[in-house]
Design a protein around this nucleic acid. Structure first.
Lengths: 221, 221, 221, 221
DNA sequence: AATGAATGAGCCTTCATTCAT
DNA sequence: GATGAATGAAGGCTCATTCAT
């Protein structure tokens, strides 16, 4: 029961921070809505800042637990792995049930990292990104430059997180089409296909370049 | 010189708002940094809120003036138009020179619209989006559903705005590769190719579906 | 001791409000003079307005407690009742000891009711006035019109409250005679006699009018 | 036309000050409603304080001009003079047409004199009061003490000014009877009769006291 | 003579935080 | 361990006033 208050506080605070931002929420309101004393925040977390930090941390941890990184069998074809990765990312990013504030909170930090969270956020994002990079390396052998690889990775991630970051805009532009648009499986399918097509084109183009270079080499010899 | 103070105030305020958000900036600081009186904000704009609103408006207007929407000749092939559109969007979104705060400010509103700006932002975003939709309709004839079309549009926009929205993350993950990554022309080229590949694939898939359906129809007759 | 600060604040604030009016007093000064924090007013009363309202309320309540409405025995002659009433009103209205600000504050509201206090003041004044009306009805039977009755009542009240409302003027005009002028018993005696004389005259005049009317009636028949 | 602005300013300001008090009115509003520049008040009057002072002065002067003190023929019976005096006072005090703010403004100062106006107000009130005192001396020969005389004078003045000072209360208590209650002639008639009755009673009582004293003197000799 | 842009003191209030209990 | 009364720094804003024109 002791931990109960602390967790309850984190839950309430996270939700409010996600909704209205750090400055948009007062300690009083958090405590009031949590049904505890005004100084509970300071008592349990020392600081409003620290409460915020903890809330983000908890949000991230819970999100990861709820949607753990998939583990592939080594012999899965890379294209399948990519689909899994994308669906995984979308799951983390898209709303699911009542814990939407978690994604919202994390995204706020991703977009504009607080000084308190900067390192934490990086440590949260980087591993996921490196998994994606390794995965893409399997798809696109040595033909593609490192920079090109990063661009592909960002293209994929960008498509996914857009639905969360610009949620308000998407909702407004989509209108009645919204539910079918953000349908998880279909969306994952779309982004995967769309991206794979892009990747294959890049590969072909790289191959063409290589062949052409070889031909020029041969004709030159 | 009369307009000087007002504009200077907008410049300073916009920069700070973009950096630290509405609540993260005090009127006092704005005025101090602008080298004018504490009550200058109230004098010129009546309100902190109104100063913010005006700053966003100015940012958007300036951004549009600096990077006006391209006008295509009617006989440009759609693929070329798309490249133009994407480069245009990237130009608006990516940093250029000292006026980076403009894009930053607009993006903040796009991600989480203030009540004061909600309508304004929608009126700012929607027209651009509809240009894209019409453009995509030229590329993907009747084969693609409306929902599919929206997904493609969002995929394209998502890739572009990602570099701004997650600027901090991109910078951190890219490290030394950052400059070459965000090189405007190359980036526009990449996203265009990547997206066109995706679009063509969708078209082919749609055609295949149609043929298969026809075959089944013929064999059934 | 808990209530101490709150009450002290009410005392100080009431005194100052009575002296210099609502706008003439700052929250800072109130708190400073009360020896408490600047935000104590907001803490205890939420609002400067509310502090004022409460101060007026307290002043009225205390005044009523200090000088409770007299209760007559039913067989007291009306003239005696009137003397009691007048002395009672004078007591409430005239300065007594250190709590002069209470009467002052109430009178300010009577003269120019704040929107916040309007209803409250009416509810405070009306009952007292109706007691007077009933009392006068005992003195002046059906001979006097309702309007005439009200005029008498206002004449009585006017004489009493004058000493408070125009206290400054009275003090200045009276000079050294002030203490003997505002001597409670003598003043009550004066106003009672003065008013009773007026009332009796009105009654006689009314009776004469009635007799004359009767005579004309008889002579006409 | 030059004086026009100054006078217009005084008119507008007086009206507003009477309505909402010194602190309840801003210089900006006065100037705005007068259709002149923001700094006109400072230009013409140097000060807000000074504008207020002038406004009160003007109000008093105009009031005196509109309702000049009556001059009696020496052989008017004192009772008639008193009726004139009372009607005169009521005229100055009661609302008449659009210039009600003048009386209101003067009364505010009478009730609570500003430091700026204190002496001025006294000089305005005292002469009128002394006229009344002389008049009463004609009615009540040496029988009445000085203090008694003052009490009578205050009783008369109190009845008159009550209708202005407690205008709000009177209006509220009187309800529909208000118009007939404040009818100038009738009200003057009432207060005169009421007061004369009181005076005569005092005289008779004084005479009785004297006779009794004489009788005791004679029986003692 | 008259303007109005600009000033800065000061107001009420909010808020995170502390400290005695 | 937990409370909540009390704090004081700081915030946005209003307002009378000034000064260059």
């Amino acid at each position: 029961m002791k931990q109960g208050v602390r967790n309850h506080l984190l839950e309430i605070a996270g939700r409010l921070f996600a909704e209205r931002g750090y400055d948009g929420v007062t300690v009083r309101e958090i405590c009031h809505k949590a049904g505890v004393n005004v100084s509970a925040v300071n008592y349990y977390f020392g600081d409003k800042q620290n409460l915020y930090l903890e809330a983000v941390r908890v949000a991230a941890r819970q999100r990861i637990e709820e949607v753990p990184m998939i583990t592939w069998s080594a012999d899965d074809p890379p294209a399948v792995k990519l689909r899994h990765y994308i669906r995984n990312l979308l799951q983390r990013v898209l709303l699911n049930g009542g814990a939407d504030w978690q994604a919202q909170l994390i995204m706020s930090e991703v977009v504009k990292p607080t000084r308190a969270c900067r390192r934490f956020v990086q440590e949260f994002v980087r591993p996921n990104f490196e998994v994606l990079l390794r995965l893409l390396r399997e798809l696109v052998p040595e033909e593609l430059s490192e920079t090109g690889l990063y661009r592909v990775a960002f293209s994929i991630v960008g498509q996914c997180v857009y639905y969360r970051l610009c949620k308000g805009i998407v909702r407004n532009l989509a209108g009645k089409k919204l539910p079918s648009l953000v349908h998880l499986e279909q969306l994952a399918q779309h982004i995967t296909e769309f991206s794979l097509a892009g990747i294959y084109t890049l590969i072909q183009r790289a191959r063409q370049r290589r062949r052409r270079a070889q031909l020029m080499l041969e004709s030159a010899s």
